[in-house]
């Protein structure tokens, strides 16, 4: 369904990002269409998270264009990007450790009008029943998998058109990784567009429609997920032969 002239949601055109004098992203271009799961894979330090942080406005590109629904979002700042309908679920989960599960989720709806919050909370609790059980528990005491669910639920509270997930499988046991990817598939099935950054290339390619492979700040390979999965270079570099 994504191949048939889907509407472009996010368009990134030749962005360059620097950390001080270090040229971290050397001209990356990619596109996410409505209803797709697009994944960025690559080794440690390839620039996956940097790319995602730039798209979400946490970092500013030195040059290049980023547009969301046809409007440029370069330099408007992370706090405004959320309001446009893009939510980032950051690397390492980053839940608010001292707040309860419920308070965390309420913070996720910060950019939305207050009267929407109860309904959004209800939706998140339906999708993550485990969070409902832990509603009044302090987030820092949750297990890694639960924190990941909380981080995803929190991102969903802003009702994003595009959900950006940064390494959702990081540091989780294999069974939990599968659970998280099941949730990603469910979210996709219910119509959420997803931009997924992953080190676990096997899992990411198994759920994605299209994939971009990053190597030290540049896109080296791109195409439909099955094609990328079958690519010999990808197999050798990321999938253990």
């Amino acid at each position: 369904m994504s191949e048939t002239r889907a509407k472009s949601l996010l368009k990134v055109d030749d962005i360059h990002v620097y950390y001080g004098s270090i040229h971290a992203i050397k001209g990356i271009s990619f596109e996410v269409n409505e209803g797709e799961i697009v994944t960025l894979i690559g080794a440690n330090g390839a620039g996956k998270s940097t790319t995602l942080n730039t798209v979400s406005g946490l970092l500013r590109p030195r040059s290049g264009l980023i547009s969301f629904e046809g409007k440029s979002i370069v330099g408007i700042g992370a706090s405004k990007v959320v309001g446009l309908g893009m939510a980032l679920c950051p690397e390492g989960r980053r839940v608010f450790q001292q707040m309860t599960v419920r308070e965390n989720l309420e913070m996720g709806g910060f950019s939305r009008p207050g009267e929407e919050i109860p309904q959004s909370l209800e939706n998140v609790f339906t999708r993550f029943p485990r969070l409902k059980e832990r509603e009044k528990q302090v987030a820092g005491t949750l297990s890694g998998g639960e924190q990941q669910m909380l981080a995803m639920g929190r991102a969903l509270m802003s009702k994003p058109k595009l959900l950006m997930l940064d390494e959702p499988s990081m540091g989780l046991a294999p069974i939990l990784v599968e659970q998280i990817f099941d949730i990603i598939k469910e979210l996709h099935a219910s119509g959420t567009t997803i931009l997924l950054v992953e080190q676990n290339a096997q899992m990411a390619l198994s759920v994605a429609d299209r994939a971009y492979v990053l190597g030290t700040g540049k896109i080296t390979i791109s195409g439909p997920a099955e094609a990328v999965l079958a690519d010999d270079r990808v197999r050798a570099a990321y999938l253990g032969g």
């Binding site: 950051p90 980053r94 839940v95």
Partner: peptide
Amino acid sequence: IAAEAMGI
């Protein structure tokens, strides 16, 4: 970072 990502 999380706060910024929430739109704060």
